[in-house]
Structure formats: C-alpha cells, structure tokens
C-alpha cells in the first residue's frame, strides 16, 4: 500500500518536473551572472579559477554560511554524543600488521601535503579549501583505521577550528572597515597566475582548509569513538 502511494506521488512529481524542465535547454547557458563572472572575474578578483573567485569573493558570504553549517554539524555531533555517559572501557586494540602500519605512517604526511597543495593553490588550479580540507581529513581517517588507539588531540583541534573561522570573519571585517564592504578584497591583486595573487582569496581558502580539515577529522573522531 505504502509503495503504491509512493509510486503514485512520484508519478505526479515526474509529470510536473518534466513539464518544467522542457523549457530549460541543455548545453546552452547565457546566464547574466555567470557571463559577468567569466568576463570580469579575472580583473575584479585576480583569481585564475573563476569558481574560486565566485565562491570566495562574489558569493563569499555563502561560503561563510557554509563553514558555519559545517561547524554547526560538527558541534551538533559533539552535543548529540556529549550527553551520553562515557563508558571507560580499556579496549583490547588489535594492532595492524607491520606493513600496513609502516605504509600508512609513510603515506600520512604525503596526503597532508596533497591536501595543503589543493587548498593553497585553490585560486589557480581546480580545488580549494573544502576539497583540500576533505583530503587532509582523509589522512586522519587513514590513521584511525591503521594506528588504532591514536586520537586527534581535542584541544588543538578546537583551536584550529576556531582560528580558521575567526580569520575568515576577521578578513571580512577588515574589508568592512577599510574597504567598500564586508569581505571586500582589500589586498593588492598581484600578478595574474602566480601564487601571491588574488588578494584575500588564498588567505581565506587556507583558513577554510585548516578549519574544514580539523572539523571533518573531529567528526570522524566522534563517529568512530562513539560507535564502538
């Protein structure tokens, strides 16, 4: 019965959406906003990656909200688990084999390096703070899976999280005080296609990278510890 209702409901929505989508041609975009960013983005923000210039500069406020969403989820996760009575059980941790253990210890800094590269070069190449942060967190996941028993240090994790967010907000506020508005790109744009270009964009993306990495590592830590 439930299925029949579900299918009937879906059929109605299919009809509706296909009627609406017919008017949206595929493969042709002449959107006003997108065109403007493509044509003016280089000049106005100095970033070679236009997606980055949209994410961090034109729609930077969204990104601020976005890291707030991630922060909310990370903190919410902690709150959901925080009310539970902590059981102190000395667990027998089975050690992983020497090859896996050594291999992962070797890979760990390399993954961190890749992550850092992705968020530092976010304004020049594909990538950015969120992607880089996710890669950094994956390094921590690897450590959890192999070097069992090791945990992210809670305090330093918190400090990185907080500072990342505060740097983003702080850059925005400096723009508000000395420039034309919140998140105004007040630093010199630099030479196009070099690392030190695009003003505040790399700084913000590095802060986001650290913050996202710390947050996702914290989320993994919470989920792994609590589901034992």
């Amino acid at each position: 019965m439930r299925r029949i209702i579900a299918i009937a409901l879906l059929a109605i929505i299919v009809m509706g959406i296909s009627l609406a989508v017919r008017e949206i041609p595929f493969g042709k975009t002449d959107t006003k906003v997108g065109e403007y960013y493509l044509n003016e983005g280089r000049e106005e923000t100095g970033a070679a990656n236009i997606v980055t210039s949209v994410v961090v500069n034109y729609r930077g406020f969204d990104t601020l909200g976005e890291i707030a969403v991630l922060f909310t989820a990370a903190i919410g996760l902690g709150a959901v688990f925080g009310s539970r009575k902590k059981r102190k059980v000395a667990e027998e941790v089975e050690k992983s084999s020497l090859i896996v253990y050594t291999g992962c210890r070797f890979l760990f800094p390399v993954i961190l390096l890749v992550g850092a590269y992705i968020f530092i070069y976010g304004h020049l190449t594909p990538g950015g703070g969120f992607q880089g942060g996710a890669v950094v967190a994956s390094a921590f996941l690897l450590m959890y899976l192999t070097c069992r028993g090791k945990r992210v240090r809670d305090k330093s994790n918190k400090v990185v999280e907080s500072l990342g967010g505060l740097i983003f907000v702080g850059m925005g506020l400096v723009g508000l005080v000395i420039g034309k508005g919140f998140l105004f790109n007040f630093l010199p744009k630099g030479e196009f296609l070099t690392l030190f270009s695009a003003g505040i964009i790399p700084i913000i993306y590095i802060a986001i990278g650290f913050k996202v990495g710390a947050e996702l590592a914290g989320v993994l830590d919470n989920l792994i510890e609590e589901s034992k």
């Binding site: 906003v33 960013y37 236009i50 949209v54 994410v55 890291i67």
Partner: peptide, 15 residues
C-alpha cells in the same frame, strides 16, 4: 567556458 555559478552552488550544497 561553462557557467561557474552552479559549480559554486553545488560546492555549498555538497558541504
């Protein structure tokens, strides 16, 4: 070049 805005939106959406 493709429109950069939907990509930015999807980035936000995925997060």
């Amino acid at each position: 070049m493709v429109d950069p805005v939907p990509q930015a939106l999807v980035l936000t959406g995925i997060v």
